[in-house]
Structure formats: structure tokens, C-alpha cells
């Protein structure tokens, strides 16, 4: 065992940790912003609104993230029209491709999580809002979405962890995230076990923090679901 290679390359791993956190949090934030309007459209009874969103989520949930990133990063560059378009400065960069792919992927999952939570709104709550004169927009803003977010919280916590683990794909397309850093250390020293275990520990550390955050979030936002304590 050569644990010294891990210690010698701590700066590389720290940089990888930071990169992973950056990509995952940015794509989670953008994906959530994307998912809010899409989940509302997806739960619409109008098929012209819900169908395109269904197709989007079906593609991104129906295919592996690795394949999606390869399609965006390597696949699109194959077309001359893309290489000559204004999008090329973005699409030729691994970093942008990873961010776009991650955002669309988590956006699709969160859309479906939120759709389920929206559709689980007790109909009586919507009727009560309607009956006191709230508009459709107010009802979404004040009644449906706040309830849906709370119901979606446990499933969303899982999605955050899945997204973290999915983010190793960034390391596959040359980005120096945690996995990328471990891969590089291994390439320099041929210590697969030590370098991957170091990566594993860092991922576990982040997951620990994520579960802590969600535990606190649930204790705050699930107060209305807890059994009565007096």
C-alpha cells in the first residue's frame, strides 16, 4: 500500500473536490429552476403542454448520463453546422457540455419528482383556494407548489445523491473532478486502489453532508406531517 501518493497529491484531490461540488451544485440549482415550470406543464391536462415535457423527461431518464454527455460533447461536434454556429464556443468545451448535460439530466428527474408531488395535492386544498377567490397562479404559488416541494423533499434528497455519483462522468470527459483527480493520480503512480479509495472517501464525505442538510430540511418543512407531540 502506498498511501503517501494520496498525501502527496492532496492539492489535486482538493481541487477535484471543489470542482465536483461546483458542477453538482450548479447543475442542481439550474435543474431545479428548469424543473419548476416543466413540472407544472407536465401535470397539465392539456396534452399539447404535457407531451413535449414527457418526451424530454423520457429521453433523459431513459438513457444513461454517460451516453448523454458523449452525445453532447463528442456527438454534436461531428456536425459542421454545429462547429460553425455561434454555439460552438460553448459546445466544444468539456466544462460547458458537462454543465448542460448534468442540468438537463437532473432537470428531467426533478420534473418527474415534482409532477408526482403536484398531482398528489389533495383536491380539497385547491378547491378551498379557488373558493376564496385565489387565481390559478396564486393557487400554484401559495398552495400547490409549497405542498409539492415538501412532499418531494425525500425523493429530491435521493436525486441529489444520484446526481453527485453521476457527476463522475465529468471526469470521463477530461474534467478534473474528484474522479478525474483520482484517475490522474493513478495514471502517475499506478496505485488504483489507493487513489480510488481516496475518491470514494471524498464522495462519502459529501453524501454525509447532503444527508445532514436534508435531515435538517425535513425537520423544518415536515413539521406539519410529524405526529403530534404534547
Amino acid at each position: 500500500m502506498h498511501w503517501d501518493v494520496v498525501l502527496d497529491n492532496w492539492q489535486l484531490l482538493l481541487q477535484g473536490l471543489w470542482t465536483t461540488i461546483l458542477y453538482v451544485s450548479a447543475s442542481l440549482a439550474l435543474g431545479l429552476i428548469l424543473a419548476i415550470p416543466l413540472s407544472i406543464l407536465r401535470s397539465s391536462s392539456n396534452r399539447f403542454l404535457s407531451w413535449p415535457v414527457w418526451a424530454f423527461t423520457y429521453f433523459f431518464r431513459g438513457t444513461p448520463l454517460l451516453v448523454q454527455i458523449y452525445l453532447i460533447y463528442y456527438g454534436l461536434g461531428q456536425f459542421e453546422s454545429v462547429r460553425e454556429s455561434f454555439l460552438w464556443p460553448v459546445l466544444r468545451e468539456a466544462s460547458w457540455c458537462a454543465l448542460i448535460g448534468f442540468t438537463l439530466n437532473t432537470g428531467a428527474y426533478v420534473t418527474e419528482i415534482l409532477r408526482g408531488a403536484i398531482q398528489a395535492t389533495p383536491y380539497g386544498e385547491i378547491e378551498a383556494a379557488t373558493a376564496c377567490g385565489m387565481s390559478r397562479a396564486q393557487t400554484y404559488h401559495r398552495i400547490i407548489m409549497p405542498g409539492a416541494f415538501r412532499r418531494a423533499l425525500p425523493a429530491y434528497g435521493n436525486e441529489v445523491i444520484f446526481m453527485l455519483h453521476g457527476s463522475v462522468v465529468a471526469g470521463v470527459i477530461t474534467i478534473l473532478d474528484i474522479y478525474g483527480a483520482a484517475k490522474k493520480i493513478n495514471a502517475l503512480t499506478y496505485t488504483y486502489f489507493e487513489s480510488m479509495l481516496a475518491a470514494a472517501v471524498l464522495y462519502m464525505l459529501i453524501v454525509y453532508l447532503i444527508t445532514r442538510v436534508f435531515k435538517r430540511a425535513e425537520s423544518r418543512w415536515h413539521a406539519h406531517l410529524r405526529p403530534r407531540t404534547e
Binding site: 380539497g124 386544498e125 378551498a128 398552495i143 405542498g147 415538501r150 406539519h224
Partner: peptide, 9 residues
């Protein structure tokens, strides 16, 4: 309403 329909959250 019969079922009260208070907003649960």
C-alpha cells in the same frame, strides 16, 4: 367544506 380542506402545510 365537509372535509374542512385546510391547507396542510
Amino acid at each position: 367544506f365537509q372535509q374542512f380542506n385546510l391547507w396542510a402545510h
